[in-house]
Design a protein around this nucleic acid. Sequence first.
DNA 1: TCGAAAAGCACCGAAATAGTGCTAAAATAC
DNA 2: GTATTTTAGCACTATTTCGGTGCTTTTCGA
Lengths: 139, 139
Amino acid sequence: MLRLTRRSEYGLMALAYLASRPREYCSVREIVEELKLPKRLLAEVLKDLSRAGTVEATRGPGGGYRLVRSAEELPLARVVEILEGPVAMTDCMAQTCELEASCIIQTGIGRVTSSIRNVLEDMTVAELLPASSEAPLAV
Amino acid sequence: MLRLTRRSEYGLMALAYLASRPREYCSVREIVEELKLPKRLLAEVLKDLSRAGTVEATRGPGGGYRLVRSAEELPLARVVEILEGPVAMTDCMAQTCELEASCIIQTGIGRVTSSIRNVLEDMTVAELLPASSEAPLAV
DNA sequence: TCGAAAAGCACCGAAATAGTGCTAAAATAC
DNA sequence: GTATTTTAGCACTATTTCGGTGCTTTTCGA
């Protein structure tokens, strides 16, 4: 149903949380307590985001994750791609499709796919936050 | 990964095919031969579309399915909704979400969801077809 | 009355997803 | 340098969704 996976959903929530605490390192424990998410799963997700370079991590007491750059520079598409692969409505769009020859809607689906990709490219993690909690500037 | 299900994919292909043969009844057999799709599955899909009133069926020899109204009046969103339920990026958007309280991105995700829904509302089955095969006016 | 075609119902297998367990490595505090 | 906090890595299980099929019934035309 065109759903995001939980990974993306949790990932976006966590990133939004980090965005509301700029430059602060937030531990997985803190985040899951705050957002009420399954700990190990969010840990997995943040690890992936870290590997992909959207967040940076430090270990040990006082450690955790923080955004590498401002949330305004982080499009949703980037997050979704990291956590669930390329944004494509059909396999055709992701790579190759055995139906090629008989597929009469290939180009049409291509247009839809890029429109949707555009929506996700244009919106950033910063915009996910309600206006109030946006950039509170608290250290 | 934000994918359509095969049901939607096959359904859209079949509808596009019907659109290229206006007012003609096309049997499942004919369609799957033409488009190289699994027969029983497409039958299932067309049955659902029929129940939902986007195509009409007649049985017996010479029977099959045809569009109830022109493909220009059939938005992709309608098809996807029939075949896989409401277009929603998260469960939150489809109905209720237990995280409500702790979910800081609810309104944000709501905005993305409606943008995507709009994309699918604005594009019709007619637009899926490459310009050449559009409305051939045969018969 | 025979054959073609949709309608209904129920089921199966495979793949993707959600989620967990455990151990290792790093950083800090004492 | 030892204990503690926290991320990193690896592997695994359970559940759900999805793709696909079988079989019977009903309808319609020839």
